Computed example of a mutant assay.
Amino acid sequence: MVDVNKHQIIESNVITGVIIAGGQGSRVGFQQKALLPYHGEPILKPILALLSSQVHTVWVNTNVEIERYQAFSEQLFSDEYQGFLGPLAGMHAAWQYIQTDWAVFVPCDNPNLPNDFVSRMINAYQNQPNPIVIVNDGVRLQPLYIMMHRSMAESLNQAIAKGHLSVNRWVKENDFTEACFADCCSKAFQNMNTLASFDVLEEPS
């Protein structure tokens, strides 16, 4: 593993954002969750806007219906591993495309990402430098919201090869820093995991 400089100061303009949207959508009737409507437009759109305002560039990890995603971003990539292995596979594949040494990963079903998400992840790293930084929402860890150094790519590969596909497990097998978001609103890291979650949202006109 490449040693992370303990005194390195990270700036948001050298961080790439990655939205993980590579699942089959099994919890939402095998639809692409990122493309389900949120206030009249796919939920992916506000997430892209929120993350794009905080980082150098944003990529979207997707494995199906790629032509539909092209309407929102040209920065798309798919898992190298076949079989919809989950977020770890998307994180692993990202390093074949992004050019920065640091990336932040977020899921595709939360339009309430804090406006200072990336800056707070950077501050947590500077207080306790580790190659992985994950969110603690004040109640529990939220390992799908993660900042990672490029040096972790091989660790991701090894975990997937072993069939260890839990992001939470992988994080805890490595050195990581917790970024405290206990003072954020209750919906800051509330994902929409079922079709019922979208029922109250407006349908596209």
Rank of each mutant, 00 (worst) to 15 (best):
A71Q: 05
D109R: 00
L85S: 11
F77Q: 04
P107W: 04
L85H: 09
A94T: 10
F105T: 06
E80I: 06
V104W: 02
L76E: 11
V104E: 03
C108I: 08
S73H: 09
N110T: 01
A89K: 10
E80C: 12
Y81D: 07
S78A: 10
L113K: 01
S73F: 10
L76D: 09
E80Y: 07
I98W: 05
G83I: 11
D79K: 04
D79W: 08
E67G: 02
L85N: 08
G90A: 12
E65Y: 00
G83R: 05
V104P: 02
P107H: 06
E67C: 00
A71D: 05
L113Q: 02
M91I: 15
F84M: 07
G90E: 12
A71T: 00
F105P: 03
G86V: 13
G90L: 10
E74I: 05
A93I: 08
Q82C: 10
W95H: 11
L76F: 11
S78K: 09
Y81R: 10
Q75E: 15
Q96Y: 15
E67D: 05
P111S: 02
N112G: 00
S73L: 03
N112D: 01
W95I: 13
E74H: 07
N110V: 02
S78L: 09
G86T: 14
G86E: 12
L88V: 15
S78C: 09
F105V: 07
I98M: 14
P87T: 07
D79T: 14
M91D: 07
Y81L: 04
P87H: 10
E80H: 12
F105Q: 06
D101A: 07
F72S: 04
E74M: 03
N110Y: 02
I98P: 03
D109C: 11
G83V: 10
I98T: 03
V106I: 10
A71R: 10
C108W: 10
Y69E: 00
R68G: 00
W102H: 11
N112P: 01
Q70M: 09
F72P: 02
Q99G: 08
Q99K: 14
Q96M: 14
I98A: 08
F77V: 11
S78Y: 05
